[in-house]
Design a protein around this nucleic acid. Structure first.
Lengths: 203, 203
DNA sequence: GAAAGGCATTAACAAAAGATAAGAAAATCT
DNA sequence: AGATTTTCTTATCTTTTGTTAATGCCTTTC
């Protein structure tokens, strides 16, 4: 039986080589626990109050992670193609989380379920590499957070926006400005002013 | 031969149970790779430009992590007793980092060297648990960063200070205010004003 | 014990950000 | 295409923060 999923497996396996390389034998086991998931624009990967049951890898599309403050949605992160996406605390502790993860555009993902991952962590043939894989993914996220916290601590909102322009312009494409403003820790109105300041250096 | 280190091993092993429990046999191997390290106030655990060679666990004392912006020191994090401390990116990639980690008070640590940890990761008796231990430590750090980034994105400096008072007052003791101000992403002058606003709600 | 340096507070001013509202531009829907 | 949201910009006003500098307190140092 050949599924839609199989079309994407080789590309996914290729991407995983950034972290870990599975042998054919190992891959046969790992790939049993993979699923394909499609999200239409505005659909949710996970929501506050529910437990995140999957770790996703984005084949195409974009997602945003947000929280509610009072009744306002505040976007704190974006994930694009070839990123992993997860409400980590909720997923790893298997307890209800506080994050919403929503598709910004139609999105295609490959997912591990929590149970599938536990099986891989306990299977003698895959335990070691899966454990290492989990560690490496977690470490990558730490590097990312280190940079992000450092930006908040050492830079002004304007400086943060400029470095986003220079270093991460991938994020800027296709993402509404008011989400970006949240990401930078400011209001949409303020981001608009910063943009104007940068574009009109005279005056 | 009995060393100073041995005095602290049982307490350390006890603390590690939060993450992972080593059998006596495993512990015999793990403990071979541990070292005791003392830092006097203002001494460095690691410095920018050099590669962080150790992962430390704080038995007593306090450290701050800071970066240089221009010529100014900006404190982005604190670690206290029973925390792990490391310049993670530099340590994990074994490449020169950009962080200074300095003792705020006299500090006592137990350390793993990078090489020691690699040996544990490759030793058949300890590989699996050490790999998992590394993953769990990394995950804890992620939970911590998740909260920190969310604070920057959803809260004003004043709100961040108030939640620090309520949730993390452990950090407030013994730590100079100008370091705290950096941690909150504001200037020391501004923190002083916030404190005044809170203490004098009238007016 | 006196001097020196570091640290928190306060003040005054400039710059930036938040809040609110209104209007323009763009995207979405039927 | 026309209509309806949604998003972005602009304007006004208030609040907060940054900057610089001065003061007083406390700790360290000799």
């Amino acid at each position: 039986m050949h599924s839609e999923l199989e079309k994407y497996l080789p590309a996914f396996r290729q991407q995983l080589n950034k972290w870990i390389t599975f042998s054919d034998e190992e891959w046969a086991i790992v790939s049993q626990h993979l699923q394909l998931k499609t999200l239409r624009k505005k659909e949710y990967f996970t929501q506050a109050g529910s437990t995140c049951k999957e770790l996703g890898f984005i084949l195409s599309g974009a997602l945003r992670l947000y929280h509610l403050k009072d009744i306002e949605e505040i976007t704190s992160y974006f994930c694009l193609a070839n990123d992993f996406i997860c409400s980590y605390k909720s997923f790893l502790k298997q307890q209800p989380g506080f994050s919403y993860i929503q598709a910004i555009t139609d999105t295609l993902l490959i997912t591990f379920t929590y149970d599938g991952l536990q099986q891989l962590l306990n299977h003698p043939l895959t335990a070691h590499k899966t454990e290492r894989f989990g560690r490496l993914i977690a470490e990558d996220l730490i590097f990312c957070y280190e940079d992000r916290v450092q930006a908040f601590v050492t830079q002004s909102p304007e400086e943060r926006y400029i470095s986003l322009l220079n270093n991460n312009s991938r994020i800027l494409q296709h993402i509404p400005q008011h989400y970006l403003a949240n990401y930078l820790g400011i209001t949409p109105v303020s981001l608009s002013r910063i943009r104007k300041r940068i574009l009109e250096p005279g005056k």
